[in-house]
């Protein structure tokens, strides 16, 4: 049995991946919306997105909409796979030892 994914398991990174995985493949979330959905601060969110990006789990796209910079974060195929395995692992833990 494979272990939990240490990169995804951190609570905020789990929320980020859960949010991105709720979207159709190839669709991303703007930084501001992701911040609101996860309840994170700017700095905290940026740092955890960086970690996920380095692991190849998310792609970060920076563009200008008019004069405003806009950062969009999208789960990669590798990220979706890792998240699915992480969720399956969580379910296995519950099945093996149901909560009291």
């Amino acid at each position: 049995m494979a272990g939990l994914d240490d990169i995804i398991h951190q609570p905020l990174r789990l929320r980020i991946m859960a949010a991105l995985n709720a979207l159709p493949p190839g669709t991303g979330l703007e930084f501001a919306r992701l911040k609101k959905l996860t309840g994170a601060t700017d700095g905290n969110l940026g740092a955890h997105i960086e970690t996920l990006s380095k692991a190849g789990y998310v792609a970060v796209d920076k563009a200008f909409v008019g004069k405003k910079p806009q950062t969009t974060v999208t789960a990669t195929a590798a990220g979706r796979g890792a998240f699915a395995r992480h969720v399956a692992m969580l379910q296995e833990i519950i099945a093996a030892q149901p909560p009291e």
Partner: peptide, 11 residues
């Protein structure tokens, strides 16, 4: 490793 309660909370 986490226990089933923590796994439930994560899910």
């Amino acid at each position: 490793m986490i226990d089933s309660r923590q796994a439930s909370e994560a899910l």
